[in-house]
């Protein structure tokens, strides 16, 4: 399910959560050192369907980097399951890991240094993964490089080294590098983190273009809520769990005018837990415990004004 425009996005997303290109179930990652445990992921559930473009948004320390490290195969979760494009990340051996990196996923990181080699030109940088993987026949590689650079709109800087490109160009070349071997999944970690607004828009549009053109399932991690506006589905992470989702679509009203609609959903996990957004909690001054009431078509959450604090509520 890609990007813009259909009214069935919500249903599709639900379908995706049940199975798809990226499927995380109860993902837990605990860092333990010197007897102190840090729970970076606390039972995260996430599903992304084929060819979907999803943004994962979260504040610093929410666990989104850990999630991306797990999905990119650089980190191993403590518990739970994570399957990316049919590869079970928990049961991945060294050979599988190499194959996974070569053909299954592509990465774009925030820093250029992690994406591109400073002493290779844009074309050479794109050629590098082709050479490493060896999946594309030698005779077709040059054409493939050209094709990718054109797709990303950076064919004009093909012979420049990263030091002589703008930040936006660098990131677009980085996207070209990431999708060079035709991966099924593209993971992007704050790809616009170091860019100004205009360049960010360029890069996000490029990502969207690639997603649309190649059908690569794209997961974008960012702390910048503005990015989310370019994406149909945004997943919010808080404290190591997915908390809410925002789905965007365009609607044509009765006057024929197009309007953007964004609906925010809370994520209900498999055992029925959900997170209230901070705004809601603050607005009604919800604390410690709340009253729940089941109505025929909804569940009501009301503050408990009577009782003293003590137990944790709202989750």
């Amino acid at each position: 399910m890609t990007g813009t425009g259909t009214g069935t996005a919500v249903a599709d997303a639900r379908a995706a959560a049940g199975g798809g290109e990226i499927l995380c179930r109860g993902l837990v990652r605990v860092f333990a050192t010197d007897g102190i445990e840090v729970q970076a992921l606390q039972g995260l559930d996430l599903g992304v369907g084929p060819s979907e473009l999803v943004a994962v948004v979260g504040a610093s320390g929410s666990g989104k980097s850990t999630l991306l490290n797990v999905l990119s195969g650089m980190d191993t979760p403590t518990a739970g399951s994570a399957v990316v494009a049919g590869t079970d990340l928990l049961a991945m051996g060294a050979h599988q890991r190499v194959r996974f990196r070569r053909t299954t996923v592509g990465f774009v990181w925030q820093q250029t240094a992690r994406n591109l080699l400073p002493y290779l030109t844009a074309a050479e940088n794109v050629l590098l993964p082709l050479e490493v993987a060896g999946a594309v026949p030698r005779s077709r590689r040059a054409a493939r490089v050209r094709e990718l650079l054109e797709l990303l709109g950076v064919a004009d800087v093909a012979d420049r080294r990263p030091g002589r490109m703008s930040g936006g160009q660098q990131q677009r070349v980085a996207i070209a590098v990431a999708v060079a071997n035709g991966p099924r999944v593209l993971l992007a970690d704050e790809p616009t983190g170091e860019l100004d607004e205009a360049a960010s828009v360029d890069v996000l549009e490029a990502l969207r273009g690639v997603n649309a053109e190649t059908g690569v399932t794209t997961l974008l991690v960012t702390h910048d809520p503005a990015v989310a506006e370019h994406v149909a589905r945004t997943v919010q992470i808080r404290d190591g769990r997915t908390s809410t989702e925002v789905l965007r679509r365009e609607e044509v009203d009765e006057h024929g005018a197009t309007r953007h609609v964004a609906e925010e959903f809370a994520v209900l996990d498999r055992v029925g837990r959900l997170q209230l957004s901070a705004d809601f909690v603050a607005a009604l001054d919800l604390r410690d415990r709340v009253r729940l009431a089941l109505e025929p078509d909804r569940v009501e959450v009301r503050p408990d004004r009577a009782g003293p604090g003590g137990t944790e509520g709202g989750r």
Partner: peptide, 16 residues
């Protein structure tokens, strides 16, 4: 290090 990290991320084996 940066080069090695990029190469590894692009699927270079430890041996390479």
């Amino acid at each position: 290090r940066a080069t090695l990290a990029v190469l590894r991320a692009r699927g270079a084996t430890s041996g390479q």
